[in-house]
């Protein structure tokens, strides 16, 4: 047997291991998410007009939509760390969710009064700042997920990288949404999507190199 010495080495090297638990990973991420949200609120970065914003349909569209993407993306990423599970179904669900959210955004947009010039509504100067801050806020989430992913055994590393990037990006956007005073759905769809796409693509490019096993 060619590999017998190898088996003996593994047997000698054997130590009890703590079994990976999806729920423990999810709890760890939830706690870390709570810490990041707490830090943002603790530093007084929450938008000053929050009580008013909470009466606006677009705020809830933004917050619930991002929360959905965070949940779906995070769950798909964690599930895919079992070698027998694929992240592809999660990716398809994320795609459908994003399309539905965009469609709802336009509906919300149509219901809100006051047509303005497209350029003014997009407000690129602020939009670029928003996008940059979303990317910065997403990094801790992507890093935390990345560490957990490295411990797992994903067999579709590209798919896992996509869902990890999308979940991290959506979480960054969700945290930023607590501070961002913009509620125009057009603005949100363009700049939030741009930031999320940047984070997701970056994660897709980098993470597979770090999680190959």
């Amino acid at each position: 047997m060619v590999n017998d010495p190898l088996i003996e080495r593994f047997v000698t090297d054997l130590r009890p291991v703590r079994r990976r638990s999806l729920w423990r990973d999810a709890l760890t991420l939830t706690v870390l998410a709570g810490v990041e949200i707490g830090a943002v609120l603790g530093f007084g970065l929450m938008r000053p007009d929050m009580p008013h914003a909470m009466h606006m349909m677009s705020f809830w569209w933004k917050a619930i939509g991002l929360l959905l993407i965070v949940g779906l993306g995070g769950a798909s990423a964690l599930v895919s760390l079992d070698p027998t599970r694929s992240p592809r179904q999660g990716l398809r669900r994320l795609g459908v969710t994003a399309v539905v959210l965009f469609a709802l955004g336009w509906l919300v947009d149509a219901l809100q009064a006051g047509p303005e010039a497209l350029w003014l509504r997009l407000d690129p100067a602020h939009g670029m700042v928003c996008a940059r801050e979303i990317v910065e806020l997403a990094l801790p989430a992507v890093l935390a997920l990345g560490v957990i992913v490295r411990r797992g055994a994903p067999v579709d590393v590209r798919g896992t990288a996509w869902v990890t990037g999308i979940a991290g990006a959506a979480f960054g956007a969700l945290v930023f949404a607590l501070a961002c005073p913009f509620d125009d759905p057009l603005y949100l769809v363009v700049w939030y999507s741009l930031a999320c796409a940047l984070v997701a693509c970056g994660t897709r490019l980098v993470l597979p190199w770090l999680i190959r096993w």
């Binding site: 060619v2 590999n3 190898l6 088996i7 593994f10 090297d13 291991v17 703590r18 079994r19 990976r20 760390l81 079992d82 070698p83 411990r151 797992g152 055994a153 096993w213």
Partner: peptide, 14 residues
Amino acid sequence: VQDTLMAVHEKRHT
């Protein structure tokens, strides 16, 4: 075979 056994060993906690 060797590569896969190493992966099994390293990822046995999964």
